[in-house]
Amino acid sequence: MASLTINGRSYEIDVEPDTPLLWAIRENAGLTGTKYGCGVAQCGACTVHVDGQQVRSCSMALSEAIGKQVTTIEGLASEGAVHKVQQAWIDHDVPQCGYCQSGMIMAVAALLETIPQPTDEDIDLAITNICRCGTFQQVREAIHAAASA
């Protein structure tokens, strides 16, 4: 039994320690906002924060997250207030199918913590999530909007 802290809440999780964090979050903690896309850290749909750093949770073992603060899309809004990245996403109508957007939003939120006013080049380097609908144009607009919010 492992104790995992997700969005400030403790979850007792009874799985093998090498289980990918993604599946512990989705299937054991029951938080399905974090998505499976590739399982090999290529697409970024599973992006969460571990102690504030963006992590592709499909490729981190559960055991590595024990004792750390895991934040998922469900926990990004603090005390009911929508995070500025989420607000920018809503204002700019960014998602299409939306499946990749949890990971995209988490990656962007992490970027803005590190670089509050990112340039286009900063964005190009930091945001490498795949979106097959092709929302990149709106993603870029929304990042700049969130940065100046």
């Binding site: 109508d93 960014v94 939306g98």
Partner: peptide, 21 residues
Amino acid sequence: LKRLDTVEKTNGKMIYGADIK
């Protein structure tokens, strides 16, 4: 006009087939 299905796609609440329980 804005899409009708955006908010749930920004907070993890939209349920996709893979999320069915």
